[in-house]
């Protein structure tokens, strides 16, 4: 098998990279794909707790890399979606504990076994970024409609280009339709116009992302979550499907009814 290796990155921290990795990975796995999520944020392990797998870690990425365990021993299988696996970051080491060549070898090894290898890139543009990007053949850039996040995203486009990763895809996270309507938030067209890269999805600002993270269950597993629906559509587009964009209007009457009935759970 020769899987896709995709890095999820943003430059700026706190825009929702880890949440995006968890949700897109989970959605792809729910579609029957074999997915490995790699937490490349060495020293600041987080993907495990977002996925609700924090109590099942025995070995981590560094153990596997140093040969202290086999790679498959370090991979944690998700119990809800059987084809989803997590390779957790080491918590005790720092970002300099790995070299780009080692990371490239590791992602290559994973790509032999999985359809998708998705790397959660640390914030910043230093060593950790280099490590996360080196083995990737495509990139997903996450931004929010804020000046600081968009500026950093632009910088990342250039840096990815320098690393040979062309045509990154854009995810706009935490869009607030009410603020867009008032003219107080950059809209989808503004962000695309500024960054000039292809859009793969727009995720509305949605409380269910926080509540689902509290529970350790990605929002894509909640059929009534709007953010979850947006992430499911992103997964479909990554798979090459032509899916319409989610309406960014405020939730309508039928939506609230569906939500109330807890449909799709």
């Amino acid at each position: 098998m020769n899987g896709k290796v995709m890095v999820v990155t943003s430059g700026k921290g706190g825009v929702g990279k880890t949440t995006a990795v968890a949700n897109i990975g989970c959605a792809l796995a729910a579609r029957g794909k074999k997915v490995a999520l790699v937490d490349a944020d060495i020293g600041l392990r987080n993907l495990d707790i977002v996925l609700g797998l924090e109590n099942r870690i025995v070995f981590d990425l560094i153990h596997a890399m140093e040969g202290r365990c086999r790679l498959r021993q370090a991979l944690i299988r998700d119990k809800r979606v059987q084809t989803l696996f997590l390779l957790p970051a080491a918590q005790s080491k720092d970002k300099d504990a790995i070299m780009p060549e080692q990371m490239k070898e590791l992602t290559g090894e994973l790509a032999d076994e999985f359809d998708y290898v998705i790397l959660d890139c640390p914030a910043g543009i230093e060593r950790g970024f280099k490590n996360a990007v080196v083995g990737a053949d495509s990139a997903l850039i996450i931004t929010t409609p804020e000046v600081s996040a968009v500026r950093d995203a632009d910088r990342i486009v250039g840096l990815l280009e320098a690393e040979g990763i062309l045509e990154p895809k854009l995810v706009i996270n935490r869009l607030r339709p009410d603020m867009v309507k008032r003219g107080d938030m950059l809209d989808i067209d503004d962000v695309i116009d500024i960054l000039a890269i292809d859009l793969v999805g727009v995720v509305p600002d949605d409380e269910t992302v926080i509540t689902s993270t509290n529970r350790g269950e990605p929002a894509v597993l909640d059929g009534a979550s709007r953010a979850g629906e947006a992430f499911r559509r992103i997964a479909a587009r990554i798979e090459g499907e032509d899916v319409p964009f989610l309406s960014m209007e405020a939730p309508g009457f039928w939506w609230r009814v569906k939500r109330f009935l807890g449909a799709g759970r």
Binding site: E146, V147, V150, R151, D154, R155, G158, V180, R182, G183, D184, M185, L186, D187, D190, D193, I194
Partner: peptide, 21 residues
């Protein structure tokens, strides 16, 4: 007729990005 704050955001971003680039 009020200029939304996003127009200001866009203008400022465009300028700073041009220089960043």
């Amino acid at each position: 007729n009020r200029l939304g704050s996003k127009d200001l955001a866009k203008e400022r971003l465009k300028l700073v990005l041009a220089h960043d680039r």
